[in-house]
Design a protein around this nucleic acid. Structure first.
Lengths: 352, 352
DNA sequence: TTGAAAGCGTTACCAG
DNA sequence: CTGGTAACGCTTTCAA
């Protein structure tokens, strides 16, 4: 029932606890020397007892626990799993584990989560927020006192004196809009499904500006707000399709919701891309396999995760290095879900 | 830099450490009484210092850390995220956190992961394995010595004296095959993408048996083995489509790989379900949104996760209760990706 | 009602 | 080369 301790190992091997500690943590090669046969006896004893060191005791003594905290807003979105996988592989290389805390799109849980990782005294902290305005206070509190903190995505705006990683959503959006406009789309709907108001602003701004520039008044008219699930993306798209005149293209805040959009369009009997174009953001693994394959903006979620973890380790090793603020490039990925705007008889649809 | 301790709080409030402990852990209402003003002073002091109790010290003292370990083989598959979410919500209700360990489809990492959670002395352990034959030894070692262990899925076969949860894949497969056979399919391909040999056996067996019963010789002829990614499902399906005569239906081991199958079929210019039917397992959230919506077997992954976590807590509260072994029902979900076998001129295609 | 002290399992410093 | 011993931060029993 009770786990064996170093004392048990020491007793079985007939040595003192200190010697066990030395041998088991491999310090026997360096400054401390140990007789080979005692060494073997200790290792043997540890094995027969199935001894595993107690992480809590270790952490208490060394004030480090080889754990990096990762706050994630929504484990329902593939984007975050990709990011997690990136962070995980990088952490694993350095022998660190990840304490994943799902904040489940709830500002209260975001605050709780921060306190939870604080209590655990994680060696580093990667933060992705959905409600950074309401949690900013708590986050700022963590920064400076705590071990390395890396802000990921929109959370970077909370405190610019902290390391941060984000994707160039602005640039990606500009490319995407240029693509759609070049295909002669002008009535472009936007399914804007975010958890909190400040999120996804870069994408929204780029969308509006591109429309203005191409002479569209009232660029916000075709923005349909909704939540963050596929279902809500599906519904929002339905509302967009009910508009008259109907949009010739629909841009969706991310690929997950874009799946819902594809469905809504299909159920209306419209063909993609002949009758209407659909595009998303993120390039989740499913994007190129759906029907038709989804045009999207690739943001390299895994690389975001890897980079953030790398930065965290870099700061651990050199706390005084200048603040790093990385913006990873985003690129347009053209697939089958976008095509030329259909020729129509209304005020925009000049034949191409 | 250094986190404040209870001693710091005590000093600031002008009381002893013990009093701080009493007040902060809310024991002041019961057997221990405390003056209201000292109480307030302590709470105030803790707040101004931003004190958070050290989880390691707490864990060392109480030998419990309010953490449940969860071993997951592949964070790339939505099935496991759903399961995680279920486990997470249940754990959160009881004030427990989850230590997620991704074993990344690697038997060595599965062993490492088990030792990692052992070292952390988690209060309970939920295990999903991809290589239970190669890790069985390690797992059996954990059982009995350790706090509650719940085996999920195929891992349940390792040790039947331990609580376990699994889905009725056998029953689900039988329903699925009955469905396809009723649609007059006889040349049914099976994309069998699993991490290790013993996985997915129930599904394979049900598939073969159903074919035998309906008079198909050599039921394994149309089984195409592959790995666990969408890409590999896509490739395996291509190989299946190269067969001659071509299958009239393709069953895929899970919905994720079925996405790859849909793509492969589409690229051959075949219509679903008129020319060929496709079906999967799991009913991941994307399944009803792909085009066409995917016929599948719903296994309620979230419920599996919730149930496993529930069982873990139940055993914590009553270590001597009889072993529970739950098999959750699976149900056929009919959507647009399956339809009648096309009429053909060969030996099976009788007009319907 | 509050304080002093022991102990949880480690590691690391100093003597032997 | 090995063995005591203090300290990490917390809870809890026992005295005051």
């Amino acid at each position: 029932m009770k786990s064996p301790t170093q004392t048990d190992v020491a007793r079985l091997a007939g040595v003192s606890r200190a010697t066990v500690s030395y041998v088991l943590s491999g310090r026997t090669g360096g400054s401390i020397a140990t007789a080979e046969d005692t060494r073997q006896r200790i290792i043997q004893a540890a094995a027969t007892l199935g001894y595993e060191p107690n992480a809590a005791a270790r952490s208490l003594r060394l004030s480090e626990n080889h754990t990096i905290g990762l706050l994630v807003p929504d484990t329902g979105n593939p984007y975050y799993w990709q990011l997690l996988q990136g962070a995980e592989t990088e952490a694993h290389l350095c022998g660190y584990d990840i304490l994943l805390v799902n904040t489940a799109l709830d500002p209260i849980r975001e605050c709780d989560a921060i306190r939870a990782v604080l209590r655990r005294r994680v060696d580093g902290l990667l933060i992705i927020l959905a409600f950074h305005d309401r949690v900013a206070e708590e986050v700022r509190n963590v920064i400076g006192r705590h071990n390395p903190v890396v802000l990921i995505g929109d959370a970077a705006t909370i405190d610019t004196s902290v390391d941060s990683v984000r994707s160039d959503h602005a640039g990606g959006s500009v490319q995407m809009m240029a693509h759609l406009l070049a295909l002669r789309h002008r009535r472009i709907g936007f399914v804007f499904g975010v958890a909190g108001p400040p999120l996804g602003q870069e994408r929204l701004t780029a969308y509006c500006e591109a429309l203005w520039r191409s002479g569209v008044q009232d660029a916000e008219a075709l923005v349909e707000h909704c939540g963050v699930t596929i279902e809500e993306g599906y519904r929002a798209t339905q509302r967009l399709l009910d508009r008259s005149p109907r949009p010739t293209a629909i841009l969706v805040i991310n690929d997950l919701l874009a799946l819902g959009a594809l469905r809504a369009v299909d159920e209306r009997g419209l063909r993609i891309p002949q009758d209407i174009s659909v595009a998303g953001f993120d390039d989740i693994p499913m994007a190129r396999y759906v029907n038709p394959p989804l045009t999207t903006v690739r943001v390299h979620a895994d690389k975001v995760g890897r980079t953030a973890m790398r930065m965290c380790f870099d700061r651990m090793h050199d706390p005084d290095r200048p603040t790093q603020s990385v913006c990873l490039p985003a690129e347009l990925v053209l697939r089958g879900s976008t095509g030329p705007a259909p020729a129509t008889t209304d005020d925009y649809g000049a034949a191409r």
